[in-house]
């Protein structure tokens, strides 16, 4: 239990206890994450199973409204799926894509940043120009082309199967330069410190120096960036899905749910868009608030009295 003791006495935990916003955000986030992990158990209906819903239930309003049905607390969508269950599964999909995209871009960006910062010179110039080029291509264009080409080549059916990994790659590819630049900047600061020289004098190889000595010292900004990037990736996914480039309606994410309801807002079925939208906003908000708190804690220079 030594690590637990250490954690309990740490400044991180102390400042967490002091910050009610951080505690609140953390609680909300944990509830959302747990619910989405346990989606098949928690959700009232399994919305991936077409046998569980009926088109005749379509567009039932939330339970508290006059024409509502107790079976569907937040009403149903245009296919007659229970909206609450669909949202839980949708949050799960959004989370998988968000976290997966961040892991992918972090892995790529950190490696590029480390190499670029440590070796410098031509390699640095080359990798940073690649990053610039990557940054100058809007991810929407990448997404449009990728999905169009994929759907043409393999058919729409395959797209539905492979949408999750493809979205992870599309969003990850467009955002890795952020990590590369952040890590590179830290590496430039760290590599001239004496402990790196000392590690060289000890006789460690350059790979050991890069990954065991420099990398851990650059992780603070990476951690802060990651929280923002998770929120970003979830939003990107929602935007892509809203444009019809993301998750198919059979396996909706929050974004595709918002889109599917959008066409029915004016016919009165506001809830199909409204509830997933609120959930998306809450999720993004708590992640960003936590990221904000983390940035303040990890950077004592920003200390606000």
């Amino acid at each position: 239990m030594n690590t637990w003791q250490r954690f309990k006495n740490s400044y991180l935990f102390y400042s967490f206890k002091q910050d009610s916003i951080a505690i609140g955000s953390f609680c909300v986030l944990s509830v959302l994450v747990v619910i989405s992990i346990l989606a098949p158990v928690v959700a009232p209906y399994n919305t991936y199973d077409t046998a569980t819903f009926d088109i005749l239930d379509a567009e039932t309003p939330p339970a508290w409204m006059e024409t509502g049905n107790e079976k569907f607390m937040l009403g149903t969508d245009i296919q007659g799926r229970d909206l609450l269950s669909t949202m839980i599964f949708g949050l799960r999909v959004s989370l998988i894509i968000g976290i997966g995209a961040v892991l992918f871009q972090a892995l790529l960006g950190i490696i590029v940043g480390l190499l670029s910062g440590y070796f410098g010179g031509k390699l640095d110039a080359f990798l940073m120009r690649v990053a610039d080029i990557q940054f100058s291509i809007p991810y929407l264009i990448v997404a449009i082309f990728t999905s169009a080409i994929f759907k043409l080549a393999f058919g729409v059916g395959r797209w539905e199967e492979l949408a999750v990994p493809l979205l992870i790659i599309i969003i990850g590819m467009s955002e890795w330069p952020k990590y590369a630049r952040t890590v590179r900047a830290s590496v430039l600061g760290e590599k001239n410190k004496e402990y790196v020289e000392a590690a060289r004098v000890i006789g460690l190889s350059r790979w050991q120096i890069i990954f065991k000595h420099i990398l851990p010292n650059t992780l603070t900004p990476v951690l802060v960036l990651s929280t923002i990037q998770v929120a970003n990736a979830v939003m990107s996914e929602a935007a892509l899905s809203f444009l019809g480039l993301g998750m198919p309606i059979t396996k909706p994410s929050l974004g595709s749910l918002i889109r599917s309801g959008f066409e029915y807002i004016f016919s009165g079925s506001w809830w199909i868009t409204f509830f997933p939208g609120v959930l998306l906003v809450i999720f993004i908000l708590v992640v960003l608030l936590l990221g904000d708190w983390l940035r303040d804690v990890l950077n004592p220079k920003l200390y606000k009295g």
Binding site: K193, E194, Y195, E197, A198, A199, R200, V201, I202, G203, L204, S205, K212, H213, P216, N217
Partner: peptide
């Protein structure tokens, strides 16, 4: 050379605040 560095020849630096890696 790496097999000699830190093995047969060691070096001690000026500032002990800086020569140890802060996160390990």
């Amino acid at each position: 050379m790496r097999a000699i560095r830190g093995n047969r020849i060691s070096m001690i630096f000026q500032d002990p605040m800086m020569t140890l890696n802060p996160v390990l």
